[in-house]
Amino acid sequence: MEASVMSMPSLSSPSRSGLRLIWRGSLFIGLLMPLWTPLKAAPEGPKLGVSITQESILPLDISVFPDGTGLPPGKGTAVDGKTHFEALCQGCHGVKGSGGDAEELVGRSPLSGARPDQTVGNYWPYATTIFDYIRRAMPLNAPLSLSNDQVYALTAYLLYLNGIVTETSEMNATTLRAIQMPNRDGFYRVWGNGGR
């Protein structure tokens, strides 16, 4: 029964991991991954899912990736962003993103200090994350209400306040993906490297 399979411990013996490596088709990648139970045959379903077109998903696909995949048409600068920020964001995030009921967004203090603040400027590794998050989640009282131009402008404003772009730098699908954030290399992955 599948039920008993589901409750098996997920750690497998090294010898059994061979099956997984074959499935993965890459010995190199396989060696970097933790040793997992070989892929179990998934329980067969009645296959009732409805095929849909790629086009029908596009309006709902609001994912934005570090390589720029998913960034929509549109543009904005920090000059425009300041106006939107003061109208929509400042009430919670404070003047110039200095913090309030919501977290502070601006600061470049070193992360190795005793009690460093973790801000967009000194912590966030990708500028595309700012766009992805603002578009789907902000402002808190009206998510998904901003235009793409507004989101680009707000992203530009936060980058400007953190000293990463100039006040007149235009953020669009091309320029935003090219931004190198100060803490781009500040993370290391625990998953997939066998560590705890």
Binding site: V120, D132, Y133, A137, F187
Partner: peptide, 12 residues
């Protein structure tokens, strides 16, 4: 996808 999205809740 091939690479993680790097959403706010897996970075910040």
């Amino acid at each position: 996808v091939r690479e993680p999205l790097m959403s706010r809740n897996e970075t910040a």
